[in-house]
Amino acid sequence: MKKFPLVLIVEDEPAIAELIAVNLRHNGFTPIWAEDGEAAQRELNAVLPDVILLDWMLPGMSGLQLARKWRADPRSKSVPILMLTARGDEPDKVAGLDAGADDYITKPFSTQEMLARIRAVLRRRAPEQVADSVSIGALQLDAGTHRVSWQGAPLKVGPTEFKLLHYLMKHAERVHSRAQLLDKVWGDHVYIEERTVDVHIKRLREALGSASTMVETVRGAGYRLTAQVDSAKLIAADA
């Protein structure tokens, strides 16, 4: 039997939630609705969805608080989150991405835009087809087991950051523009802003710890992963 992707809609306005649910059903998705954070958590505890559509303004816990909570939970940290909000300014978008959202949909939005963004995050979260391993200096990545280590110690790297690191390590010493990274790591990036790359580079550096200096910013050009790192920088980072 064909499995239809399960979409959890966290929205406190019933009319909007019903409109979204109807369009999802007509396009091959199975929607479930929760009107606040408490109800959403119950749904998550029962069945893990394939995607979460999360409204920013909710009674009780806000969408940002819920996104942070679910990203910190090992069970739900890999579920794609699309933030729904009327806040369209760049600082708000960055806040949503920093909280753990994978994408951002500004109200009002068209049905086709919503569906395209859902399909895009599902494609981006698809398992890696190439299960190889790569090493750059003391940094090691195994795509088959989804593990990263630095100087033999394991590192905790999120799913999107893992794909980003994998690509950078496979193409070390080359400078990649944000547009190139979006194309190679995210795939179809029609609806994804280049600022998204900066957010995930920041998260990747935080996850790498003292190895973060290997991810270089090339002003006006993009990013590069290099093994040619000044040992003094590594010592300073470890301090």
Rank of each mutant, 00 (worst) to 15 (best):
P5A: 02
V7E: 08
I9V: 08
E13H: 13
P14R: 10
I20Y: 07
I20F: 06
I20N: 05
N27Q: 01
P31N: 05
I32V: 15
E35F: 13
E35I: 07
D36F: 01
A39W: 02
A40Y: 06
R42V: 12
N45T: 13
V47R: 15
P49W: 02
D50N: 04
I52W: 03
L54M: 04
W56K: 03
L58P: 09
G60L: 01
Q65D: 12
R71M: 09
A72I: 11
D73I: 05
P74L: 00
V79L: 03
M83N: 04
L84F: 04
L84N: 04
D92P: 10
K93P: 01
K93W: 08
V94R: 02
A99Q: 08
K107D: 03
P108C: 06
F109M: 02
F109P: 02
R117Y: 14
R117C: 01
R117E: 05
I118E: 04
A120W: 03
R125V: 10
Q129H: 15
S133E: 11
V134L: 12
G137V: 03
Q140H: 14
L141K: 00
G144I: 03
G144L: 12
V148F: 07
W150V: 06
P154C: 05
L155T: 08
P159S: 12
L164K: 02
Y167W: 00
K170V: 12
H171R: 07
H171W: 08
R174G: 11
R174H: 11
H176M: 08
A179H: 09
Q180H: 13
D188Q: 10
V190E: 15
I192Q: 12
E193K: 15
T196C: 13
T196W: 14
D198G: 11
K202P: 10
R203E: 14
L204T: 07
R205P: 02
E206F: 13
T213V: 13
V215L: 11
G220T: 12
A221V: 09
G222C: 02
Y223L: 11
Y223W: 13
Y223Q: 06
R224T: 08
T226W: 03
T226C: 03
A232C: 10
A236G: 14
D238C: 10
A239S: 12
A239C: 08
